[in-house]
Design a binder for these strands. Structure first.
Lengths: 219, 219
DNA sequence: GTCTATACTAGGATAGAC
DNA sequence: GTCTATCCTAGTATAGAC
């Protein structure tokens, strides 16, 4: 089964190779910024082959997003969450979630790019991803926060969903910055662990009740 | 000087009109997603006129980004900051900055879109904007934070730049979300003031020293 | 300042041979 | 499975008349 370079592949191999090459290009230049010519060239094949595997350029794009959506599912985070939430170890929850997200963004930078680009370009994919992955995440997290507010551990004068937004904002903004600028040492260069620690600390201290507030509460 | 509709304009008027129309389109569909045909159509003129005013499509795009960069300067925030920083009224600083940013993003949604799209597409504009506007903002804010850490008011175990990043992350992520989804009532719908209040509260409480920590500090 | 007409290139997609 | 050749449309850009 040894093979040199781009010689004859099986249909599945070829399809997959095209997918991989196209992911790189679409994630860097967006849908309309990428041509099927480039994709073919980068894959070392003729354009005709692309259209054997994907009826249209749009189909290829959709296939990519679909693929990435499964691969980059937040299932890992979800299970992490469910586990942690039982324990009510707040710091653990936020730290692990953050570190998990940041390292994931790092390992798969194309995903963030594709997501952002497709969102800005108004592709249905982004909306689907939000509906199927982000909204549930909001639900779980904000419910947990609401619970901790009822427990009297978190201050209850902030909308839980706004807390989630603040939290996800820190994370995604940080990842975007890393993706776009930090490689050139612009602005900031820190380890993922340090970032995760900082964000969890800020968020948690930010939403925890002060002890004194706690004691002279009005009802 | 009364005029009906798209009849003969002066060169400057026309140029400006093209700019405005193009801003809308480029911000929605990106550079390569927008055609000069569409722009001409939307402006109610022929393509030839566009090329009378801008040598190439790229030139038009650059002109837009340049224009937006000036218009959307953070000067307002900077002067706001300088004022506030003297007073050391921490909450005021963060709240005003946040509200200012959010309302600005709201008033000029095209700006965020153009910035993000050009950043993702690797256009030099985004990099320039970061260098000229964002980096200075980081400097000012992180210096202020470092000062407050020295004052013993903020905890000093978090990198000031990471704090700035967390802060800007909340804000821009929130604005992006509003831009992309919240109009459809997805996820979250809150007033700008409530969001600004939440973000400033979280951040500030998150980075302030606890009173007890404050008293039994080790050196 | 504006249009119509058009040149020219690039991009998506297909036919048909191997 | 793959290529070459090619079709066709869309896209940028220009010429020249009004």
């Amino acid at each position: 089964m040894t093979r040199t370079e781009a010689s004859r592949m099986s249909a599945d191999e070829r399809r997959n190779q095209i997918l991989q090459v196209a992911i790189k290009l679409f994630s860097r230049k967006g849908f309309s910024g990428t041509t099927t010519r480039e994709i073919a060239q980068a894959a070392g094949i003729s354009e005709a082959i692309i259209f054997k595997h994907f009826a249209t350029k749009s189909d290829l794009y959709s296939a990519i997003l679909d693929y990435k959506c499964h691969e980059a599912g937040l299932e890992q985070s979800f299970s992490l969450l469910h586990e942690a939430i039982g324990s009510k170890n707040d710091y653990e929850i936020f730290y692990e979630l953050t570190l998990n997200a940041i390292t994931h963004h790092e390992k798969d930078p194309e995903f963030l790019r594709l997501l952002m680009l497709s969102a800005l370009e108004g592709h249905e994919f982004a909306e689907m991803f939000v509906r199927r992955k982000i909204e549930p995440l909001y639900e779980i997290l904000s419910e947990y926060i609401a619970q901790r507010q009822k427990d009297g551990v978190f201050r209850n004068d902030i909308n839980p969903k706004l807390i989630v937004r603040a939290f996800l904002g820190m994370i995604t903004h940080h990842s975007m910055n890393k993706l776009l600028w930090d490689s050139q040492q612009r602005i900031l260069k820190v380890s993922d662990e340090e970032a995760a620690r900082a964000f969890s600390e800020i968020l948690l201290s930010g939403i925890k009740k002060n002890r004194e507030e706690n004691s002279n509460v009005e009802n």
